[in-house]
Amino acid sequence: MPLTDTKVGFIGLGLMGSPMAANLLAANATLTIYNRTASKCAGLAEKGASVAATPKEIAQCTGTGFIILCVSDTPSLKAAICDTNGVLPGLVHGATVIDMGSSSVTATRQLANIVEEAGGRYVDAPVSGGEAGAKAGSLSIMAGGKPTDIERVKSVFDVLGDSLTHIGPVGTGQAAKVANQAIVGATVGIIAESLSLAKAAGADLDRVREALMGGFAASRILELHGQRMIDGAFTPGARATTQKKDMRQAIELAEEVDLSLPLMRQSRDLWIKMVDEGLGDLDQSGYFQFVESDQEPKT
């Protein structure tokens, strides 16, 4: 098995983290897991994972191995690493910390400095592919870090994804993920609006999608999210609240580097509006419902 005798700690067992951790366990890693809601650890524990009480204990159990974090946002990442019971107080010299969530570029670089000063290594490796990719082990991984550190964690990445791109130094993985999520957010929005327009004009949406998939408008988002929009299948693979967070991070980064990006800013504002209207727990494809409900007369 590819990860036999490899110690891996995994923090964050959400929609993405749980299947990723399951794949590591299936690859025979010596896996220790932690989640703020402890009940989410039960399924993996039954399959042989050890459960830690704190991120600090994760670091202690993992030793010089790999500590993967897949948490919801930047504040949660900072807490998991830097709190009294976080990774940092238990970090063993030589361990590698890998952030596979979507986090702020600036915070990533700050945390990398903190971890490296404590004797650890740091890699930012956000992913694309959604829950389906996490389950299939077919994620696209965008990695930032030193070449030697990326090479060191390649065996772990090979289990989790089928595409690994070393973007550059620490923080550039997150910069690539920001670009990815901004494209996803804006594209989901225009597909939803376009399908709503075609529907209002009396067109059969299945045939519209079929036609568009054969032309220049074809995309993975139209293929998957477009079908979900037509089917009204909005059970989350990735929640609208997460997309809102990602769009906010994109604009925050744009402001930090002094760029004016009006389309991205408008997309962010619309995702915020969707969540504010109570649709935040829908899948990203639920944007179609947001567009449709926004057409209804306001009372």
Results as ranks from 00 to 15, higher is better:
67 I>G: 03
63 G>H: 06
111 L>V: 04
107 A>Y: 05
88 L>M: 10
66 F>N: 02
107 A>D: 11
73 D>M: 05
83 D>H: 11
106 T>W: 11
117 E>I: 07
84 T>Y: 07
71 V>D: 01
74 T>H: 10
108 T>K: 07
97 V>E: 08
103 S>F: 01
101 G>P: 03
97 V>R: 04
116 E>K: 13
90 G>E: 01
86 G>R: 05
65 G>K: 02
111 L>P: 02
98 I>R: 01
91 L>V: 05
101 G>V: 01
68 I>L: 14
113 N>H: 09
112 A>L: 07
86 G>V: 03
80 A>P: 07
101 G>R: 03
98 I>Y: 02
65 G>F: 00
76 S>P: 04
81 I>C: 08
109 R>D: 11
87 V>S: 00
102 S>C: 14
91 L>N: 04
77 L>K: 02
88 L>H: 06
93 H>I: 15
101 G>N: 05
116 E>V: 11
81 I>R: 04
85 N>K: 13
77 L>T: 06
68 I>G: 04
95 A>N: 00
106 T>S: 15
88 L>G: 03
76 S>W: 03
95 A>G: 00
82 C>H: 10
106 T>F: 14
70 C>Y: 04
110 Q>C: 07
94 G>K: 13
96 T>I: 12
64 T>V: 13
66 F>T: 08
101 G>K: 02
75 P>Y: 08
91 L>Y: 04
102 S>T: 15
65 G>R: 01
87 V>L: 00
90 G>S: 08
116 E>Q: 15
81 I>F: 01
74 T>M: 12
67 I>E: 03
97 V>K: 06
79 A>C: 09
70 C>V: 10
92 V>L: 15
96 T>K: 05
86 G>C: 06
116 E>F: 08
64 T>P: 00
91 L>Q: 04
93 H>Y: 14
65 G>Y: 02
92 V>F: 15
92 V>N: 15
112 A>T: 06
116 E>A: 10
84 T>P: 06
93 H>D: 15
71 V>E: 01
97 V>Q: 08
100 M>R: 05
103 S>Q: 06
101 G>Y: 01
107 A>S: 12
95 A>D: 00
84 T>Q: 13
68 I>Q: 08
90 G>D: 04
82 C>K: 14
103 S>I: 06
68 I>P: 06
114 I>L: 15
71 V>N: 00
88 L>Y: 05
95 A>M: 00
99 D>G: 01
74 T>E: 09
77 L>N: 02
98 I>N: 03
96 T>F: 08
106 T>R: 13
77 L>P: 02
63 G>F: 01
90 G>R: 03
94 G>S: 14
82 C>W: 06
84 T>C: 07
70 C>K: 05
99 D>E: 10
102 S>F: 14
69 L>M: 10
71 V>A: 03
